[in-house]
Design a protein around this nucleic acid. Structure first.
Lengths: 235, 235
DNA sequence: AAGTGGTCTAGACCACTCC
DNA sequence: GAGTGGTCTAGACCACTTC
């Protein structure tokens, strides 16, 4: 049994102090030189302990300022209707109240994607893709990509109604045919859109919507794992 | 705009080669000394590029052997009944066929937990906690914790039926009252139970089961994000 | 300007894998 | 035993934040 690495022991000790509450959320940890001095190691060794805490999600580091215990984030618990998997109207109002600016359209363009086009039952490879971003109280939380048939390329979306709302306004009464949840790590795109740390957890929800039994829309949502949870309540 | 860090550029170049298929899943990447030589940097700089790829989930490293492009993980798509959120019988049989050893009981003990006890409507803080592990084809996939009223502490569970099956066998016809999904990072416990890498993504499903409108069981499942996805199909 | 974290080089020894 | 990744020290310079 090899003895525990020095940096790992330091990380464990700090992690224990965080979990015990000795180091409170938001408070600043000792600097790297301080840790190195205190434990009698080189700065890089102390630094590696901090890397350990960062990838574990316990700590966040601000360049030039210091490392801080991550605040316990309040999670946005979003209710979902058990039958339809859509948000009940009451919830939509509730969400809207916390939303700043509604569902922001980031881009909308025709794109070649044979796989998704096939899923939508389209004759060609072309799909109309809309990328949106949802913020809760200003914080980016959910990045969505909707793939639609090209005939809907002139779709206009009011921020307050969202893409699915716009479809409904056109008389397309959709519901989910299938719905998948999984977990992934934040890639470069998530970091850019959601402001996730590299290597943070992302909750992925993927669904295929149908209207009149016809495939209408594939939606993929990537949600910040540290901020969002989806709850289904059954009465 | 500061120029891009050397290690980051190297990581990006390797990541592109992986995504383009130039470096196939399962194949070995150049060694750290080779990369250092090739890019004209110190070994630690090349090494940091590998760290980048590891925390991004693209690469896994085996001590003494090398770093390898992570295999495209086949995902276990587990179907869930839309109404009950439980697995339909056909799926249970399907899962059972892939399970090795069924739901393995890791521990079962009485524990003090006022919060969970309150959720179950228990007069005291005591709950009976059962921890289990599910493997798919030998690979640990889902670690569950069931919290039950102490009166069920003599529950016996056949591996093939699972904890929920055992409850049903006792005539407790349960269903979900609420069900939450979220994403988290792998902690030490996940690493031990699920064999997750530090910092890997974990899909968390949490539910409260009721029987005859009485709270019966709180279950928390932590699933390997890279191996498991849950799909609901609506007919 | 002083202090913080971010990057990089140089060189060393150790633990593990594979032959 | 040769080669791989894992850990550690030493020292340097840069970029950012704070004052």
């Amino acid at each position: 049994m090899p003895r525990e690495a020095r940096y790992r022991a330091i990380a464990r000790e700090l992690a224990d102090r965080i979990r015990s509450g000795d180091l409170a959320p938001g408070s600043r940890l000792p600097t790297e030189p301080e840790l190195a001095e205190h434990y009698g190691v080189h700065r890089l060794t102390a630094r590696q302990a901090m890397v350990e805490l960062r990838t574990g999600g316990l700590v966040e580091t601000r360049h030039g300022s210091g490392s801080y215990v991550r605040a316990l984030r309040r999670r946005y618990e979003v209710s979902v209707d058990p039958e339809t998997r859509l948000h009940p109207p009451a919830v939509i109002d509730d969400i809207a109240a916390r939303l700043s600016g509604g569902e922001e359209i980031r881009s909308a363009a025709l794109r070649q994607d044979p796989v998704v086009a096939g899923r939508l039952g389209l004759p060609d490879a072309e799909v109309f893709e809309v990328a949106t971003l949802l913020r809760m109280e200003g914080v980016p939380c959910v990045a969505s990509r909707y793939a639609l048939p090209p005939r809907l390329a002139d779709l206009t979306v009011e921020p307050t109604e969202g893409v699915l709302g716009a479809l409904r306004r056109l008389g397309l009464d959709h519901r989910y045919r299938s719905h998948t949840v999984s977990a992934d790590l934040a890639g470069p795109e998530d970091q850019e859109l959601l402001g996730s740390e590299p290597g943070a957890a992302v909750l992925v929800r993927e669904g295929l919507l149908v209207a009149d039994e016809e495939p209408l829309c594939q939606v993929v949502r990537r949600c910040r794992g540290d901020l969002v949870a989806f709850t289904t309540r059954y009465e």
